[in-house]
């Protein structure tokens, strides 16, 4: 699904290869669960298709628009950091369930955030779409919490040793998104141009936004 997004949000040029788990047994379990729910009438085929369609509508372009707005409007940025759920609702983005909330983590000159879900694959799907496969891999989930600098190096990001890393493990109903630092030399760019610099990976913290010369 990300292939047709290249015009808007491009990926890191460097993406490490993480081993994929054997999915065949999971596929059988999912199919079994689906058939059971359908046969018991707990869910209909139409509802299932609507949920999938809703999920497929979301892409990292949504998250990028929010970040570009935070880069250009200080008041919005402050509201976004203070209460992410409330601030993005101003732009028409609402969590899929009432109980889910959003916290936006602002990177600074001295602090870089990296998001993971060690228990499963929690991800702000309602702002970024489906997570990439590597996000769900055992390798990423275990190494992000034990060797975040190593992970970042493999994604082509080498942070200055003076910048601390804060890994955030999404263990409950809160979803996290990174607010990356605005690249220098972007003062004269319009919103569309800024959005074009914001990669999906920079919203997870495994990448940085493009600089204008590259973007």
């Amino acid at each position: 699904m990300y292939d047709n997004l290249e015009d808007h949000v491009s990926h890191s040029h460097q993406e490490p290869h993480f081993d994929s788990p054997d999915t065949s047994s999971f596929e059988k379990q999912v199919e079994g669960l689906k058939q059971t729910l359908l046969s018991k009438g707990l869910i209909t085929q139409v509802e299932l298709e609507e949920m999938i369609a809703e999920l497929d509508q979301r892409t990292p372009f949504d998250g990028a628009q929010i970040i570009a707005r935070a880069w250009t409007e200080r008041d919005f940025r402050n509201r976004l950091i203070a209460n992410g759920t409330k601030a993005v609702s101003e732009l028409g983005y609402h969590p899929p369930d009432d109980f889910q909330s959003l916290v936006v983590l602002a990177n600074t000159e001295f602090l870089h955030h990296l998001i993971v879900c060690t228990l499963c694959s929690c991800y702000p799907r309602w702002l970024l779409g489906r997570p990439p496969d590597w996000y769900k891999s055992i390798a990423y989930r275990s190494r992000a919490v034990s060797d975040p600098r190593g992970i970042l190096n493999e994604f082509g990001v080498t942070l200055d040793p003076n910048i601390s890393i804060r890994v955030v493990d999404s263990t409950a109903e809160v979803r996290y998104m990174v607010l990356p630092l605005r690249p220098s030399g972007t003062d004269n760019l319009n919103m569309k141009e800024l959005v074009g610099l914001i990669t999906r990976d920079s919203l997870i913290g495994v990448g940085l936004p493009h600089s204008p010369s590259v973007g």
Binding site: V145, S146, P148, S164, R166, V168, D169, T171, A172
Partner: peptide, 30 residues
């Protein structure tokens, strides 16, 4: 109640992390 709690990585992975590192991890804990 659910809290965001921060831990220094050096306190979790004692052998793998340099003592002067300020790298940390946050988890949501009930």
């Amino acid at each position: 109640h659910l809290y965001m709690v921060e831990f220094y990585l050096v306190n979790i992975w004692t052998t793998a992390y340099a003592n002067d590192s300020h790298d940390s991890i946050c988890l949501d804990i009930f």
